[in-house]
Write a protein that binds this DNA or RNA. Structure first.
Lengths: 363, 363
DNA sequence: CAAGCTTATGAGAACGTTCGCACTTTGTCG
DNA sequence: CGACAAAGTGCGAACGTTCTCATAAGCTTG
């Protein structure tokens, strides 16, 4: 077993009695090579236990065959599955994946991008924590690094994106609740960042925003869908029913849900805007010992694996999460391969998965 | 905004009017440097938008400041959280993390290790899919690549490992059920690989195996704990209650659980050996509409986030999952830093988290 | 049969860093 | 004041590949 001494292409060449150039050609299979020489070199390589050095190769070719991923938090079912999608595509194409977490913190995101850039990744998949297209991403893209945004997207960022139709599917979900007869529907969402006005202002204007031109966080888009559905039904939106969770944690969501559910005129239905919010919401419901759907109807955005076997099973919005990752990777690899067409913004469909957590409200 | 033309240390040096060596010293901060020259170089670097090239650096130093991770499946709450632990430590120390999935397939694991090796990672964290210490891992370690095993471990592999006390905590869980009065307790576990005899043989001999010397899959160790507890109580093990799931999927687990629960003399309690098995088991229970804990008591190995708010909340074995990852990373970084002490095998404690899914069996 | 391909090989220069060495200059100590 | 260490700098050689070029042999082909 050839141990510590690293075997280089030069040594293989010496062993095979050819030049390093020739050895390089057969080992890296490029250029012309005769069969007998190839065989000799391969035999020498096997005998010596040669392992190519990607770093040297990348240094000269300028391609590292590696993509960088900046996720918010890998310990979150959504990102875990997205990453799986990315990894599957990457592996099939011989690419490595370097993973970093930003925790929705802009400084960390910058550091992460910096690290990945220094490691000379061929491209980046990022869930940007500032949706307005922060400067570092802008200069990154201007610098020619292929980039794909996932989950959220600045449309003015000149980079591809893969998202879901947050507004439309949230609208569908809330419509489902309204059709069931609910009129006091609360939403639980992380809605920290808002730059152009107050929440009330946002709700008032929500209907006028077009979906495409806007670059909003998914939570805000889902809130838009919530407002849309209310407008469709002529039901006024009560700002008191908007559970604005201050930080992205299920504990905070639990608190917000608890407050809502303990208010005197409590909502008859709850809509959780994502998986983390759902977990907090479920905890609050369990703590208060409310019966679903008799005492409370619920719908969760994002269809986590446990939602189909809780009793009752939970009605959800099912996002094609794996597909988000695989599509992002495919887009990115196409860019890396030289695709220079205009940025594509892919909006995937999410579907309402009706189960048993919605019933008419008790009068 | 300096766009495509990549700025090198040489250009920065020229701009600052010093040699590349000096520029390198200040930019890479090694060697001696005077304050005024350092300032000049830094100014030049900032002006030109210099970004160091890790590949070139790694090529000469031989250190890539990157660790490779071979997980079974990142789209699994356990590995996702482990990876988070790894990532947190790595980031704090300025290391990158390259992630690969093996899907418990030896060929994929080989490919993954090969890829990581070519990318010249400084060390490897791997959940080996063959617990007997497959040849490629052996030669990897012999080749001097620092390696840490997680979740499972070959003790004869001369590499550190981080695992949990599977046998002891499974024993504790099953003891909890036995104390509650259960005598027909089923276990649902992926128990595909078994090399030294049949399942019956294994059960017969389980009590004689020592925990430390053995290198078994977690599932098998948990089965050992199951057998241990039965022996403690003088309750014979009925092989018919061992739900041997053929493949590592929740669907397969659901099938196995369904068969068990529909048998004429059905078990009064179920023990799921890991998170994936738990999901399948819960689905089966929901499909058959069994009441927990009135009609069936359950305990799940691995405390997934939803298990505390299902009704009833589920009694579980809580593993320190994040800690497994962070400890593995710490161990690995210590090895990379030069620690050459004998391999450490860390066995972390898992604790029984008592909730409401266990009650005495109905007579 | 000379001109022009295609195939095959080697020499040597990249790629962008770090590092060993030689060379100053400055400071310190006996 | 001479010696000797320490601080600061530059030159040029690594690191392990790929890639351009030059060379040459074996073809076809008009």
């Amino acid at each position: 077993m050839p141990a510590s001494p690293r075997i280089t292409i030069t040594q293989v060449a010496a062993e095979a009695g050819v030049s390093t150039a020739t050895a390089g050609r057969v080992l890296g299979n490029y250029g012309y090579t005769s069969d007998d020489v190839a065989a000799k070199v391969q035999a020498a390589a096997r005998k010596l236990g040669y392992k190519p050095n990607s770093l040297a190769r990348s240094l000269v070719t300028g391609k590292s065959h590696t993509i960088g991923v900046v996720a918010a938090d890998i310990d979150n079912a959504f990102y875990a599955r997205v990453l799986r999608g990315i990894g599957d595509v990457a592996r099939a194409r011989g690419f490595g994946v370097i993973l970093t977490n930003s925790d929705e913190d802009l400084e960390r995101e910058k550091d992460a991008v910096q690290l990945l850039l220094e490691k000379r990744v061929d491209g980046l998949i990022v869930a940007p924590c500032d949706v307005r297209g922060s400067a570092h991403l802008r200069s990154l893209i201007a610098g020619g690094c292929p980039t794909v945004q996932i989950d959220r997207a600045s449309y003015d960022l000149a980079a591809d994106s893969v998202t879901v139709d947050n507004r439309g599917s949230a609208r569908e979900a809330v419509t489902h609740l309204l059709k069931a007869g609910h009129r006091r529907i609360a939403i639980i969402a992380e809605l920290e960042e808002l730059h152009n006005g107050s929440l009330e202002e946002f709700v008032r204007q929500a209907a006028h925003f077009s979906t495409n031109g806007e670059t909003l966080y998914p939570s805000w888009q889902r809130l838009q869908g919530y407002v849309d559905a209310h407008r469709d039904f002529g039901v006024p939106v009560d700002p008191g029913l908007i559970g604005r969770v201050g930080s992205y944690s299920s504990d905070a969501a639990c608190q917000a849900a608890t407050v809502l559910l303990q208010s005197p005129d409590r909502p008859t239905a709850l809509f959780a805007a994502d998986g983390t919010m759902s977990i907090g919401m479920m905890q609050a419901i369990a703590d208060l010992d409310l019966q679903i759907p008799e005492q409370l109807s619920i719908i969760c955005f994002d269809d986590l694996d446990w939602m189909k076997f809780t009793r009752p099973a939970i009605t959800t919005i099912h996002q094609p999460v794996h597909r988000i990752g695989s599509m992002a990777a495919e887009l990115l690899l196409a860019r890396i391969a030289g695709d220079t067409s205009v940025p594509k913004h892919n909006v995937l469909e999410a579907r309402l998965q009706v189960r048993d957590s919605v019933a008419p409200p008790r009068s």
